[in-house]
Structures are given as structure tokens and as C-alpha cells.
Design a protein around this nucleic acid. Structure first.
Lengths: 107, 107
DNA sequence: TCGATAATTGAATATTTTTTCAACTGTTCA
DNA sequence: TGAACAGTTGAAAAAATATTCAATTATCGA
């Protein structure tokens, strides 16, 4: 490898950071999860409500909510036998807005 | 479905938009592609340079470049027998910066 | 022209990810 | 207590994605 590329390679973020970053975006990168995040922009919801709105099984939604929780994008609060979910971070909205801007410019 | 959820469902972005959005983020959501985008932040590069820097085969890189081109995140310009790749949009940098901010806040 | 190099492509394989299904935990309320 | 409901979980099946390998195109220079 030549000098220039060697230098470039050293300037790259750590692999660990890259993996975390990719992992974060992967979370946004599934339609089901994007829809869930979309719903939650309008207000907090229970799991069965999300499932109903998206026309999916509660189980499938719950699995995806776990992924979203893992990425710290949503948080759930137990209220009696129900769990109320909310966005956990306003980067969610910001990141999605940027995404939409990109998409719209391509038209 | 009750009135409130019915209303909410109608407010959601079109499925088509959601799919496009998820598709955009999916592109960022793979470590190889994230690394490619990372390299290109420092300057334009030929395919074999990217492959060398990342320690991957030219073929694998080329396949991923196609995905990145499809998402209008990079563009390639043929220079003789080589193809020089560059970022195609400054949203790339912005979106990645937001992602990094989110990650760093979680520490 | 021929050989070497850069890159792309398609098909097959390997890997990862999502969804489904059934079982299970915890809570409410009759 | 026990029946009904909300949600989570694990394992299996289904679907999507990434990488490899071999073949192909295009360009350069001897």
C-alpha cells in the first residue's frame, strides 16, 4: 500500500465506531421500524396500538421494539399491564428529516 | 380500529416514502458501505484504492459501490481505464455526523 | 495486436435478518 | 382463584443481503 493510502487508512474512524454507526443506521433501515418511529412522532403509543396501526402482529412489533430500545431510539414505560412507548431522543426526528430531504432532492 | 388510531394511521407518510427512507438508511447500515463513505470524506478515490484501504476484494467493493450509486450517495467518473469515486451529496456527511452525535451521547 | 490492468457483472454460496408460531410472564378484574 | 388481556421471548421458517468466484468489458502501452 502506498504512503497516501496508508495515511488515509489511519485517518479512518475506529472499526468499533464504524460498526456502531452502521448499526444505528441499520435500525432506521427497515420499513417496519421506520414505520414504528413514524407513528411515535405523533405521540406515545401502546404496543397493541402500534400493531393495529401498522397491521402487524403484536409479536413482530415487539421484536422490532426491542431492536429500537437497544439502539436507544425508543423507550417503553410499563403502565399496569400495558407498555407505553415513546421516542427516546430527538436525533430520531432530525435524522429522519435529513433522510427525507435527501429523498426529496432526488426528484 | 378506534377513531384516534384511524386518524393517526392516515397521518403517516405514504408507504412509498417510508420504503424510500428505509432504503436510504439501509445503505448507511452496512459496515462496508459505511467505511467506503468514510474513506471518501477525505477525498476522491479509485476502486482499487478503496479495496486496498479496506482490505477487501475489488469485486466486493464494486458491488457495494453500485448500491451507493443507486442511492445517489456517491458518483463515479471514468478516467481512462479507472473510475474515480466521490461523495455525491453533502447530506452524507451531515447524516453521518448526526449519527455520530447520537452514538457519542450514549456514553 | 497482445498482454496487463481496472472495473463491472451474474450466479452460487454464505450470512444475517425478519416474521411467525407457540409458550410463557405479569396484570387486571369478576 | 381463574379467565382474559398485554406483552415478551425463543426457536424455526422464510426472506433479504453480502461476499466470493469466474467470466466479461474496456482501456492502456509495449
Amino acid at each position: 500500500m502506498n504512503e497516501r493510502n496508508e495515511t488515509l487508512r489511519r485517518q479512518l474512524p475506529d472499526d468499533e465506531v464504524i460498526y456502531e454507526l452502521a448499526n444505528l443506521f441499520k435500525v432506521f433501515g427497515d420499513p417496519t421500524r421506520a414505520k414504528i418511529l413514524g407513528c411515535l412522532q405523533f405521540g406515545d403509543l401502546y404496543v397493541y396500538e402500534i400493531a393495529e396501526i401498522l397491521g402487524m402482529s403484536v409479536s413482530a412489533v415487539s421484536h422490532q421494539l426491542r431492536v429500537l430500545r437497544g439502539a436507544k431510539l425508543v423507550k417503553g414505560t410499563k403502565m399496569g399491564k400495558e407498555v407505553r412507548y415513546a421516542l427516546d431522543d430527538d436525533h430520531v426526528t432530525k435524522i429522519m428529516e435529513y433522510g427525507l430531504t435527501h429523498i426529496n432532492e432526488d426528484r
